[in-house]
Design a protein around this nucleic acid. Structure first.
Length: 455
DNA sequence: AGGAGTATAAACACAC
DNA sequence: GGTGTGTTTATACTCC
């Protein structure tokens, strides 16, 4: 029999320690309320190859936008309903608004903030970041600490959670220890290839991923090619992240497990890219006011536009590892931004504004190059029924073994991965469109301001 | 209301 | 024996 926790202690769970991702802490919720603003940060490193040259626009754009953020254009854009009225934090216990003295970076990635990743995603990122794609628990701790300083000062319970995840999560498996390879205590942990796809999907559903469901406005039309909107995981340390200069997108934190709720409320006025890694070499931020540029004036693209469907196979099992993210209907309650919106913004802008050839920064060569890097990867969808059929009553490890023994890997999903990669690149293209749009609007605003001053 | 997914805490066994 | 690791159970919470 397991231990029984004192009721008093259990009652403290929601606000104690790490219970901020799943049971969002008041602080977290407050930040979430005030954090739905657009900002963009990117840490750039020198382009490693020609692929990156096509992304040089981001340097300029983010510099420009960052200058805006320091010139009074920044404003707080809290959650708003369709009438523009601020929405209260969704937590009943949270009544005070987020103070405005915190930068978006602090709000999202400050050392005191728990990263909006589930432990399974953190572990996945850590392992994937390892050259050998396998890590001992200790190194997983280290990776998490390195990339998310929050845990440095967090209660030590998070390590227990990491171990708990490793043990219980089917996605992670121990590597049989090579006797000749002494790594001290414990074993190496790796990603089970069979479940890797699910971890990717889980990661995609996190706020930092461009294809977070919160960013995707499902189409009212039937899906035509769902897979085409998959994209590779982006996180600090991921090859793609590095390859593209550390550009990540983020939607407000707290949406990992609440994405559906926010989405259903139409609470995504803007996309909010942020530096994913505190150790980024160079970061800039686009502040919330710029987010307004995206959602006002020309207005966001209608969500009923011929948009792609939600990317994920919603029938897939998310057993203790993957984030939940059912497809949501297009909300009519407020502004929302999806990938399609971004693209649509570009279309809208360039209808009226001169369109430049370099507005398509991700050329086919880049795509091909990138795709080639991901073509090797394989992933398998997993279904609840499949796993359930293996017997829930069996211990996990036995179930894993049974699953491995009972099933031959289906056909590989290279195509899917390829499409995911393409989707991500297309998304970057969309981001660029956003930045161009922002730039144009900001320039116009500045001009108007000048004229107003003259008058 | 109940299931699913996740976080947290704790106990225990085992290896180093 | 101490510490780290791995497993398991229990509970709480949110979302659907």
């Amino acid at each position: 029999m397991g231990p029984t926790m004192p009721p008093s202690k259990k009652a403290q769970s929601p606000s104690s320690g790490l219970g901020v991702t799943q049971g969002l802490s008041p602080l977290y919720r407050e930040a979430e309320a005030a954090d739905l603003s657009l900002s963009l940060s990117a840490s750039f490193s020198k382009a490693e190859d020609e692929e990156l040259t096509s992304l040089s626009w981001l340097h300029e754009s983010t510099d420009l936008l960052n200058s805006f953020s320091h010139s009074g254009l920044r404003s707080v854009s809290p959650l708003q309903d369709s009438d523009g009225h601020p929405l209260p934090p969704h937590s009943p216990s949270s009544s005070s608004p987020e103070p405005c003295d915190s930068s978006p970076y602090d709000l999202a990635m400050g050392a005191n903030r728990k990263p909006p990743y589930s432990f399974s995603c953190l572990i996945f990122m850590a392992i994937e970041d390892a050259p050998s794609k396998r890590l001992p628990v200790k190194d997983i701790y280290g990776w998490i600490l390195e990339h998310f300083p929050y845990f440095a000062s967090a209660p030590t319970g998070w390590k227990n959670s990491v171990r708990h995840n490793l043990s219980l999560n089917k996605c992670f498996k121990k590597v049989d220890k090579d006797r000749s390879q002494s790594i001290g205590k414990g074993s190496l942990w790796s990603i089970d290839p069979e479940y890797r796809h699910n971890l990717i999907q889980a990661l995609k559903k996190t706020p930092y991923h461009p294809y977070s469901p919160g960013l995707v406005t499902p189409s009212t039309s039937p899906p035509t090619s769902p897979q085409s909107y998959h994209s590779p995981p982006l996180w600090p340390g991921s090859p793609f992240f590095r390859k593209n200069g550390g550009v990540l997108l983020q939607v407000p934190h707290g949406v990992i497990q609440n994405a559906a709720r926010i989405r259903s409320q139409g609470l995504f006025p803007v996309i909010r890219p942020l530096p994913i890694s505190p150790v980024g070499s160079r970061t800039t931020a686009i502040r919330s006011a710029l987010g307004d540029y995206l959602t006002r004036a020309d207005g966001p693209a209608p969500c009923a536009s011929p948009s792609p469907p939600p990317s994920d196979d919603l029938q897939e099992d998310h057993n203790y590892s993957t984030a939940k993210s059912p497809g949501m209907p297009c909300s009519s309650q407020g502004p929302s931004v999806s990938d399609d919106d971004i693209i649509a913004v570009e279309v809208g802008v360039h209808r009226g504004v001169k369109s430049e050839p370099k507005d398509v920064p991700l050329d086919s060569a880049s795509v091909s190059s990138f795709l080639s890097q991901h073509a090797r990867r394989r992933g398998l969808p997993w279904t609840k029924n499949r796993l359930r059929a293996l017997g829930d009553t069996l211990p996990l490890k036995k179930r894993r073994s049974a699953a491995a023994a009972a099933e031959k890997p289906p056909s590989e999903s290279d195509d899917e991965e390829m499409k995911e990669a393409a989707g991500s690149l297309l998304h970057l293209a969309g981001v660029r469109a956003c930045l161009n749009n922002i730039t144009n609007r900001a320039a116009k605003a500045a001009q108007k301001e000048k004229e107003a001053l003259r008058n």
